[in-house]
Amino acid sequence: MFDIMFEPFFVRSLLGGLLIALMAPLLGMFVVLRRQSMIGDTLAHVTIAGVALGLLIETYPLLLGIVFAVLASFAIEQIRKIYKTYAELSIAIMLSGGVAFATFLFTLGKGFNINVMSYLFGSIYTLDRTDLWVILIVTVVVCMIIMTYFKELLLMTFDEDAAKVNGLPVRRFNLMQAVLVALVVSVAIKIVGALLVSALLIIPVATSLLIARGFKHAMLLSVIFSEIAVVSGLMIAGVWNMAPGGTVVLTALAMLVTVMVVKRGFKI
């Protein structure tokens, strides 16, 4: 029953999952605190359109998914400039655009719909060596940028006006953050699935915010919750042959509920 855990495809999934579980909440912390939780969902839907195009024209699907997501992140920032007082409108427009384009491409390529399912709900079988390398590179880039610009990102998240007054190029940082989210979401969908990938950006962060004593402490806790959710979710998916997206996110939700109950019980 547990033999699956020693299979090369499962080991690849586990390694990929560990890397995604590291970078997703690190970035998710800034996304959640800036009240942009929906951006992950939007970029995931746009990524699916890219993946569908990749399958249709027989190009590496994840690459086109990344390109689509990065372009969408630029577009979101541009649309946000036009609708200054309705910031969430840009996210809603791109989300519907992504789903519409993906649906259009699905209809064109009827034969690859089964393959698309693994991108929607995640799979432990489909991660190959190239995917793993791409995830590793994105993880290194995301972690390096967060470490280098930690103070700037923290200031911008805490008080965007103060960041502007201090001369911080806030627009450039907004764009950088959106591109990073696009990278994380697009490489994570093969394991967690497009429909649930944004949960990895959000739920571990939401759990950590309940008990964190400081910002770095919240980041550390969110990574721990995220790693536990991914490892146990993948194991459950492997042993009982389920889609990992659901098991990972349900495990993360179980931790959130547990922390909420314990916090209320002990009034932390």
Partner: peptide, 14 residues
């Protein structure tokens, strides 16, 4: 917001 006083003051050094 989860930041400590020390973390907030340190952002002044960016």
């Amino acid at each position: 917001f989860p930041a400590t006083v020390e973390e907030i003051v340190m952002t002044g050094l960016f």
